[in-house]
Design a protein around this nucleic acid. Structure first.
Length: 220
DNA sequence: ACCCAGGTGGCCC
DNA sequence: GGGCCACATGGG
């Protein structure tokens, strides 16, 4: 029992080290790729993308983001202002557009009403933020953690379809439930925002067919 | 004409 | 807690 546990523990750490070499990643690489995601505007875009990317490929998300930018509706304030009706037409390419437009509208409202800005939101502690986000319709654990890790820069590990495929591929665990896997990864990695961001980026790359050698794609 | 893609909520048991 | 369904577009 204990030996088996140790084995799995080592697996996660070892995989992280090996794959970091495989993709020639240095510490904080994700941040380098996404240097553009530093500004207030970019953080808000991560939040928007977190909703749009639900159950859809990134290509479709990009099409919606282009529409939003063209319509100058790519900030949380814009989204609250234009309202769910018009918003839904702009985000059609990313699918489930009526549902998602309500999700997005309510999320934008939630952030602005409770915190007034993403920067101020970042000052709140992780636990409170997660609880709050989970009360928003359309924000489940994955979307909440995605926002927390990549937009708000809190140390929490994201479990998604790519993570589950990764876990299966390397036979890391049998239990694929969200809480179990999140706990498992967090227990076996240093509690570091950078590590969580980079590792998740690696997991996504591992799930992409083109992924070998040099990394240029930033669609994480 | 299929099939698939980075979820979530609602309903049922 | 888990199983099933609706939600919808663009690309292969």
């Amino acid at each position: 029992m204990i030996t088996k546990k140790l084995k799995n523990d080592n697996k996660i750490k070892t995989l992280y080290k090996e794959l970091k070499d495989k993709y020639d990643l240095s510490e904080g690489q994700w941040a380098l790729w996404c240097k553009r995601k530093k500004s207030k505007k970019d953080k808000e875009q991560i939040i928007i993308e977190a909703i749009l990317t639900q159950r859809i490929n990134w290509k479709n998300v990009e099409l919606s983001m282009i529409n939003l930018k063209k319509a100058r509706a790519d900030s949380l304030k814009d989204i609250v202002n234009i309202g769910p009706q018009k918003l839904s037409l702009l985000i059609r390419p990313s699918g489930f557009y009526q549902t998602k437009s309500y999700y997005l509208f309510h999320l934008a409202q939630f952030v602005l009403k409770n915190y007034s800005s993403v920067e101020k939101m970042q000052k709140e502690n992780l636990k409170k933020l997660r609880e709050g986000l989970l009360t928003v319709k359309g924000v489940g654990k994955e979307t909440a953690d995605d926002i927390l890790l990549y937009a708000l820069e809190k140390s929490i590990f994201v479990i998604d379809e790519y993570t589950r495929r990764f876990v299966k591929k390397y036979k890391i665990a049998k239990d694929l439930s969200y809480d179990y896997l999140q706990n498992l990864f967090q227990k076996n990695l240093p509690q570091s925002i950078r590590v969580y961001q980079d590792f998740h980026a690696i997991i996504v790359l591992e799930g992409k067919p083109f992924a070998r050698g040099k990394v240029e794609n930033k669609n994480i």
